[in-house]
């Protein structure tokens, strides 16, 4: 069995936020199909550095699909063709010999490009800072088993909390909406009794910040769920809307 393929990469190169940027083509031969997509990029970059060229800059860190740093838009899809997979967990066995692979950064007003494929996602941090937490100081907590939580709610809260904050939902959305990201956090904390007291203010503050960061609104195309590497359900957006309506009626 032949374990290596040749591919053509078409990569977005942009020197800085102010630069206009353009696509550039690179040919790679003998790529082992057991490599991850980012290891293939390592091979490309090692070659570029040896030739004295600037390597392609991209965000990456844990390379096990959990830190949420990697963020490539591959052949028109955030994190590439495999369902429920981050770029770092995508392997070259998903591609065929002779494939042309187009790689771009996330494209959204809220995520300005820093260089090449690296974007600034600090908007997500600011949305969390606006209210994505339960206000409890260290040392003030009652016993962990003092409040039993229905397993079904705890499990649903966990499924929402799995979000890795990579921004694929925004990149996939034609409106560049961050509703899935916001919805997942709001829903997680609304499901838990500990999140009750700040339930109303939280959703309002987070949505206000989301708008300030130039993210669009949801028109229910569902592409966020389809592309989310953690397969966070679009139900979280329905629940976000419900929480928002509720917050207009109830104070907590």
């Amino acid at each position: 069995m032949n374990n290596s393929i040749s591919i053509t990469l078409v990569i977005w190169r942009q020197k800085s936020a102010l630069d206009k940027g353009k696509f550039k083509k690179y040919e790679l031969k003998n790529i082992d199909i057991n490599m991850s997509f980012l290891e293939m990029f390592d091979v490309l970059n090692e070659g570029l550095i040896s030739k004295g060229e600037d390597p392609v800059v991209f965000d990456h860190d844990c390379r096990e699909g959990i830190c949420g740093a990697c963020s490539m838009y591959i052949n028109g899809r955030p994190h590439g063709p495999q369902k429920g997979t981050t770029t770092c967990q995508l392997h070259m066995r998903q591609f065929k010999d002779g494939d042309k692979i187009v790689v771009e950064p996330w494209r959204a007003k809220g995520f300005p490009v820093i260089k090449d494929l690296m974007v600034d996602r600090s908007a997500f941090d600011r949305i969390i800072q606006a209210g994505g937490y339960i206000s409890v100081n260290t040392g003030n907590a009652p016993d962990g088993n003092a409040i039993p939580i229905n397993k079904a709610y705890a499990d649903e809260a966990f499924s929402a909390a799995e979000c890795i904050g990579c921004g694929a939902c925004v990149a996939a959305c034609k409106n560049a909406s961050a509703m899935l990201f916001v919805g997942a956090k709001v829903n997680q904390l609304s499901l838990l009794p500990q999140g009750g007291p700040e339930r109303a203010s939280r959703v309002q503050n987070m949505l206000t910040q989301m708008e300030k960061e130039d993210f669009g609104h949801c028109t229910n195309t569902g592409s966020c769920e389809a592309e989310c590497p953690k397969e966070i359900s679009v139900d979280n957006i329905s629940k976000l809307n419900k929480e928002y309506l509720r917050s207009l009626i109830k104070k907590s």
Binding site: V136, G144, L192
Partner: peptide, 12 residues
């Protein structure tokens, strides 16, 4: 206790 109070969804 601290983590539960923060909303960490531990297995139950």
């Amino acid at each position: 206790d601290q983590c539960v109070a923060q909303g960490v969804p531990f297995a139950r």
